[in-house]
Computed example of a mutant assay.
Amino acid sequence: MKTIGVIGAGVMGRGVAQSFAQAGHKVILMDISEEVLDTAAEEIYNQIRMLLLFKKVEGLEAPEVILERIHRTTSLEELREADIIVENVNEQWEVKKDVYAQIDPICQKDCIFLVNTSCISITRIAALTKRPDRVIGTHFMNPVPLKSAVEVIKGMDTSEQTIEVVTELLSSIGKETILVNDYPGFVSNRISHLFMNEAAFVLQDQVASAREVDDIFVKCYGHTMGPLETADLIGLDTVMDSLDVLYESYQDPKFRCCPLLRKMVHAGRTGRKSGEGFYSY
Results as ranks from 00 to 15, higher is better:
184 P>C: 09
185 G>P: 00
185 G>L: 03
185 G>Y: 09
186 F>V: 07
186 F>P: 02
186 F>E: 11
187 V>W: 03
188 S>N: 14
189 N>V: 06
189 N>R: 08
192 S>V: 06
192 S>I: 05
194 L>Y: 03
194 L>V: 07
196 M>L: 12
197 N>I: 10
197 N>S: 02
197 N>L: 07
199 A>S: 13
199 A>R: 06
200 A>F: 03
201 F>T: 04
201 F>Q: 01
203 L>A: 10
204 Q>V: 08
205 D>Y: 12
205 D>C: 11
205 D>F: 12
206 Q>M: 15
207 V>T: 01
208 A>P: 09
209 S>E: 04
209 S>G: 14
210 A>G: 10
210 A>W: 00
211 R>M: 15
211 R>T: 10
214 D>W: 10
216 I>G: 06
216 I>V: 13
217 F>C: 01
218 V>S: 00
220 C>V: 05
222 G>C: 13
222 G>A: 14
222 G>D: 12
223 H>S: 07
224 T>H: 15
224 T>I: 15
225 M>L: 15
225 M>T: 10
225 M>D: 13
228 L>H: 00
231 A>I: 03
231 A>S: 13
232 D>S: 04
232 D>W: 04
232 D>N: 10
233 L>R: 08
233 L>C: 04
234 I>E: 03
234 I>F: 08
235 G>L: 13
235 G>F: 14
235 G>C: 14
236 L>V: 06
